[in-house]
């Protein structure tokens, strides 16, 4: 589904490489989390996939095809919901479709309606984003990401700005969505528990420049609940990951 082949990248302002010959692979339908300390380059990986940054060397492939010259191959959900305040929730959700120009107005309205239903926001299409709670806004932003129509979803710390209780209920909600939609999800977080709860695999950024991502399979099947996190093998992986992140944080 997603493949990095010897990708190197350096910011113009830096004299060191952020990524150096990085290669990794994400399979179709996987839920993979990328974790690492702050400033380690997690978001840089996402920005490269979205072509907001251009890699110096190497290739990024989605569905075995290079992303160069392609549009609409991934849906990106940033940390902030970034809903346009002058648009209603429904109009916000239509935005990616309006840009892609693949649907008629009626089809867009229908898709918005059914997607809002899926994410539990039925009937709120005419509300302004300011009328929604933080959790509802994130759901709307997720619905907008779904409506890009892409099978690859890049979620960049989408719940980090939410309070604890909203965050855990949004995590459970996201798992339900993923199990139903069968999309491939790449999820950035700095929260080890969040990564363990959501993902089938965790990729850890160990050092800078990023030359490889250390992959860990999460020893727990789906469906999951919070209690899964208390299994001894999960606790042991959690400790291992925290140790790795601490070591990395000291290096950066």
């Amino acid at each position: 589904m997603l493949e990095f082949k010897d990708v190197s990248f350096k910011y113009d302002s830096d004299d060191y490489y952020m990524l150096e010959n990085l290669s990794f692979h994400i399979n179709k339908g996987e839920f993979v989390s990328v974790i690492g300390a702050s400033g380690c380059g997690k978001s840089t990986i996402f920005r490269l996939i979205c072509k907001l940054l251009e890699c110096e060397n190497g290739q990024i492939l989605v569905d075995n095809q290079s992303i160069d010259q392609r549009k609409g191959y991934c849906g990106y959900m940033p940390q902030k919901d970034l809903l346009f305040p002058w648009r209603t929730v429904g109009e916000n959700l239509k935005l990616p479709m309006q840009i892609q120009k693949t649907f008629t107005k009626e089809q867009m309205t229908e898709k918005v309606k059914s997607t809002l239903e899926k994410v539990g926001l039925s009937g709120l299409e005419n509300k302004k984003p300011s009328e929604l709670s933080g959790g509802m806004r994130q759901r709307a932003a997720f619905a907008r990401t779904l409506l890009t129509g892409s099978d690859l979803l890049l979620l960049d710390e989408p719940f980090s700005a939410l309070d604890f209780l909203t965050r855990i209920s949004m995590q459970e909600w996201l798992l339900e969505q993923w199990e139903r939609e069968h999309k491939t999800v790449l999820f950035i977080t700095h929260d080890v528990e969040e990564a363990l709860f959501l993902s089938g695999r965790v990729l850890v950024i160990e050092d800078l420049p990023i030359k490889k991502l250390v992959s860990f399979d999460v020893p727990c099947g789906y469906p999951r609940n919070r209690e899964s996190l208390t299994k001894p093998e999960m606790l042991s992986l959690r400790e291992q990951l925290i140790k790795m992140l601490r070591r990395e944080a000291n290096l950066i």
Partner: peptide
């Protein structure tokens, strides 16, 4: 916001769409 412009880019928006769908309403 730059973040919003970036988001529009990820949707595949061109400069014209960014201007009319984002910058102009933001400037109102």
């Amino acid at each position: 916001k730059t973040d919003m412009i970036d988001l529009m880019h990820t949707f595949g928006a061109n400069d014209y769409e960014i201007f009319f769908k984002l910058k102009l309403p933001a400037a109102l």
